[in-house]
Simulated assay, not measured.
Amino acid sequence: MREVRLFAAAADAAGVESIEVEADSVEGLREHLAMRFGPEFERILAQCSLLADGKKISSGPLTAGRVDILPPFAGG
């Protein structure tokens, strides 16, 4: 199992800030989350950055134990 932490709009859409997921790849993680939380979450997830060990990931195998999902930030 892998800890996935959700932030801001991703956490709001999922209704949780942290979950445990069984996934060995970025693609598998995205698919699992989209199925679990539905189309609105999937739309937000498509705009998010995924970080493993503080490094941005976009595809391929997951080697880190924890993944952070960060929506784009707006600020001023």
Rank of each mutant, 00 (worst) to 15 (best):
R2P: 05
L62W: 00
I19S: 03
E20P: 02
I57L: 09
E27F: 07
V16N: 00
V26Q: 06
S49Y: 01
A8K: 08
A74T: 10
A11G: 07
A9N: 09
G76T: 02
G75F: 11
P72W: 06
P39F: 07
V4Q: 04
E17A: 15
G54P: 06
S18R: 15
G15Q: 06
A11Y: 06
S18W: 01
K56S: 13
A13F: 11
L62I: 02
I69H: 00
E31H: 12
G65N: 11
G54Q: 06
E40Y: 00
V26G: 02
A13M: 13
M35F: 08
P39D: 11
D68W: 03
F41T: 08
R43H: 13
R5Q: 14
L70R: 00
Q47K: 13
L45W: 09
I69S: 05
E40F: 00
I69R: 04
V67E: 04
M1L: 12
A34I: 10
P61F: 02
D53Y: 01
R2V: 12
L51C: 11
F37Q: 11
T63I: 09
G38A: 13
E3Q: 14
P61C: 05
F73V: 15
A46D: 10
R43D: 13
G54I: 07
V16S: 07
L62M: 00
R43N: 12
M35H: 13
C48N: 07
E17C: 14
V21W: 05
L29G: 05
R2G: 06
L50N: 03
L29K: 01
R5V: 14
A74N: 06
E31R: 14
K56C: 08
A52R: 02
L33S: 02
G65S: 14
L33C: 09
L62Q: 00
E42I: 04
R2S: 05
I19D: 05
E31P: 11
G28F: 05
A13C: 13
S59A: 15
G65H: 12
G28L: 02
G15Y: 04
A14T: 04
E17P: 02
P72H: 10
L51S: 12
M35Q: 15
G38D: 12
F73K: 05
E42T: 12
A34F: 10
S58M: 03
I57D: 07
D68I: 04
S18H: 09
S59W: 07
A46P: 01
D12G: 09
G60C: 06
S18E: 14
S49D: 08
V4W: 00
E27Q: 12
A23D: 08
A8F: 07
E3A: 12
A11L: 00
R5D: 08
A10V: 08
L62H: 01
A23L: 01
P61Q: 02
T63W: 08
A46H: 03
E20G: 10
F41G: 08
V16Y: 02
L45M: 10
D24V: 00
A13E: 15
P71G: 11
